[in-house]
């Protein structure tokens, strides 16, 4: 295998000092994807690996005013078990808990899930629905913050630069009772299987049942991870009804077809997207009689 150098670091500044050189280093943390890629030889030759699994400052889950900040090296098990995450995100703990198996959740990190940016990444739809922001730092220690929706640029592609480290992901807390959320993962087997599709929904309604906010994100549905803004607009400001929910779901299906075209999987995926969305929205929203 082609690892030329393996560097163990314990602080962010140490990681950053490894990233500035001419032959860029690869970051490894939990290793749940990277060790497999290394053994397959798909990472290339003569690489420098920087192991950040011991950088404590990247593992914290903290509340900063109204925002919740999760360090890039926080493991899925910690996110799944965090009461702060459960209360503030309504859905992210479910997404983290659905990752792989207990063994994988002990090591796999949220930063790895984001940066790998696989279509089936379990936490990404949840983070999109939470309007999460990504914080990056480069080798000169300058910070860049951007919405996760802009960071994810394509299948397994992100906007991260060679000398940048993903520091954290943050989102405004939804704790307090107005917001509701649901996360549903469609999968062949309950564990250790790639998600077929995952549905992350957040909603808020006023006392009259008018939808004030609705956020829809579906993993493995679009070629580039994103929200279904057109469909969301169809519900906002209206009372939720079976008819409105169905039209919203149909709008999501249209967006999928528009972005991905008709594929071999469409005969299965499109009706499932519509049916699961209708069911999830009907459960989530207070419906008009």
């Amino acid at each position: 295998m082609g690892i030329e150098k393996y560097i163990q670091v314990t602080s962010i500044s140490e990681v950053l000092s490894c990233l500035g050189g001419t032959s860029p280093a690869r970051i490894i943390c939990g290793g749940t994807d990277m060790v497999i890629s290394l053994r397959e030889g798909s990472l290339g030759e003569h690489i420098t690996l920087v192991d950040i699994s011991r950088v404590k400052e990247l593992q914290q889950i903290t509340q900063d005013g109204q925002d919740i900040e999760i360090g890039a090296a926080a493991v899925m098990a910690d996110i799944a078990e965090s009461s702060c995450i459960a209360e503030s995100s309504l859905i992210l703990h479910h997404a983290a808990r659905s990752v792989g198996s207990p063994q994988i959740r002990s090591r796999g990190t949220i930063g790895g899930n984001i940066v790998t940016s696989a279509q089936c990444a379990d936490t990404i739809p949840a983070l999109l629905a939470l309007d999460a922001q990504i914080t990056l730092m480069n080798s000169e220690q300058s910070v860049r913050t951007l919405p996760i929706s802009q960071f994810l640029t394509g299948p397994k592609q992100t906007d991260i630069r060679n000398d940048e480290l993903l520091i954290s992901v943050r989102f405004p807390s939804l704790a307090g009772g107005v917001y509701r959320g649901s996360y549903y993962k469609l999968i062949r087997r309950a564990a250790v299987a790639k998600s077929r599709m995952s549905f992350a929904l957040i909603s808020a309604q006023d006392r009259q049942g008018i939808v004030e906010d609705i956020r829809i994100s579906i993993g493995s549905a679009l070629s580039t991870h994103g929200r279904f803004k057109e469909a969301e607009k169809m519900l906002i400001g209206k009372k939720a009804s079976l008819d409105a929910v169905e039209k919203t779901a149909e709008c999501c299906v249209s967006q999928v077809v528009e972005q991905t075209g008709i594929r071999w999987s469409s005969a299965y995926k499109l009706p499932v997207i519509k049916d699961v969305l209708c069911r999830e929205l009907e459960t989530l929203l207070e419906m008009e009689d």
Partner: peptide, 16 residues
């Protein structure tokens, strides 16, 4: 068990 948690030893580098 690694530091009290189950892990797959096939996916943990010895350095980690």
């Amino acid at each position: 068990l690694m530091n009290g948690r189950t892990v797959n030893a096939c996916m943990v580098l010895a350095g980690s």
